[in-house]
Amino acid sequence: MSAPVLELDAVSRQHGEGATLVQALRTVSLRVTAGELVAVMGPSGSGKSTLLTLAGGLDAPTAGVVRVEGTDLAGLGPAGRARMRRTSIGYVFQDFNLIPALTAAENVALPLELDGVRTSAARAAARTALEEVGIADLADRFPDHMSGGQQQRVAIARAVVGDRRLVLADEPTGALDTETGEDVLRLLRGRCDAGAAGVLVTHEARHAAWADRVVFLRDGVVVDETTSDPVESLVETGA
């Protein structure tokens, strides 16, 4: 078996202390290998976003270890983590989080340029990424002039540009209608089929169903998990 791209080893995150202590996540372990898409489901407040921010190095655990491509994020220091976020980890949020003053291509190229890639090379990579998500023709548009679904495609392009191997998506379909949401899942799935590791936080079963495995969180604890083995087919394909 290949080494996991993402590994959470008995990770906990608590906020506050004493009477105001909140255990957002309690000794959660999770491994995601290349090619795999894992969905995380659970009610509001169950720790889904906490899990994802820890996986993405945006927050640090109070106990346990987070490794991305074998590297312990805690051992990297803030600068190293920031670099890891620009080169290995892509993040997709519900509200797209695009910079309004930049065009689609500029938004996508930004993480590469911040990482010191020359502008022309970064723009070329951005165009390739936009092509991959099917909106190459919108490269010069500003976010305000795009639909929600188009903006989310840009956000996905930005999350995967430069061949980042770990894609983390927090409710990426939350603001989209069913069909558009499905397109977003198709893209994430395609990215994982092409070798990335993905974690998708969602409360929608139809979207979680695109994942190989579904992990259920309750009160910061993993309470259940579906396996990745296909079940015996419930229905046969049409001829």
Partner: peptide
């Protein structure tokens, strides 16, 4: 039920 959904998907 989600396993069934995974199968349909």
């Amino acid at each position: 039920t989600i396993r069934a959904l995974q199968d349909y998907t």
